[in-house]
Write a protein that binds this DNA or RNA. Sequence first.
DNA 1: CGGGAGTATATAACTCATTATATACTTTCC
DNA 2: GGAAAGTATATAATGAGTTATATACTCCCG
Lengths: 167, 167
Amino acid sequence: MSLPHVLLGLLSGASASGWDLKQRLSRDPALGWDATLAQIYPALDRLFRGGFASVRTRRSSKGPPRREYRVTPAGLRELKTWLAEPPSRRRERDPGLARLALLEMLPAGERVALLHAMRDLASDALRSAPPGTSAARRRRRALLETEMAWADAEAAVILSRHPRASE
Amino acid sequence: MSLPHVLLGLLSGASASGWDLKQRLSRDPALGWDATLAQIYPALDRLFRGGFASVRTRRSSKGPPRREYRVTPAGLRELKTWLAEPPSRRRERDPGLARLALLEMLPAGERVALLHAMRDLASDALRSAPPGTSAARRRRRALLETEMAWADAEAAVILSRHPRASE
DNA sequence: CGGGAGTATATAACTCATTATATACTTTCC
DNA sequence: GGAAAGTATATAATGAGTTATATACTCCCG
């Protein structure tokens, strides 16, 4: 149940609308969370009804009226409680990796192709990753670099054992 | 919708029961997927009803009768189709990271504590990680090592700037 | 022989996430 | 003035994942 807390966190700097929050979440993957508007709007409404955020509707110069939320003192308390929780390892789910793990049963050529595709994804993500101005961003870059190095190394091993695998 | 495919993949080597599959999924995080029994049993039943797997009930020497599944030719075709799909980057969600990203607003001491906790989690996971006998396992180890190094480096930076932050 | 631990399957209730769809306001361009 | 694109909020339907609960078979220990 992280979304409401992440929203509180983003709101704690300055007030924002659901639309704004969505922009920030999807533009900075280093934030470690993302959600669709269909999740965000109800979540904001629950924060409001729970007394963790307040709302003000304001006319927008370029669209329908915006509902701008800000954190209440109760919201700030709740946020700090959440921030202080000890971390626990999540279940790591990754469809790409799941495929790779099973791919050992398929021909070398297909494994190499998948590794290249994974490498390219990591490389694209790295190119568009904001520079390392925060711990979270530096972590993301380091992990992406590791992933690229790993994919290259694995592909090289396969190719050295199956010289024709890239055809 | 990866679970059914992952199950087909695990089943493609040898027949197995839902219980067996759960053991394998939770014992090897490098598989990139996990699920609870409450997901696995209905999923296996759907695979069976879709003609992708067959079942045989067998008496067990240490419990109630086991329902052992195996992949059918149609299941194998479906599995191969899935394996050949191009990978796409998932939405990366990580409550621990999300907290860290927001923590920049809190005192240095709390940040260091969270970084230490994250480092310990990675370190524990690494200790209990099976050795790198597959590409997927090597990837997991590399990522965990990167995460440890990152957490150490970040903590060191904070401590050098706030000498009293560890109190 | 009764209870606990481990094995094994199953379903219900619930929460969380995704996809689809609807509405509406503003600016820009034709 | 009408269509398109971007901004903005909202809900319904569906799917995926978690938690809780129930049942049942075997072995072992006291």
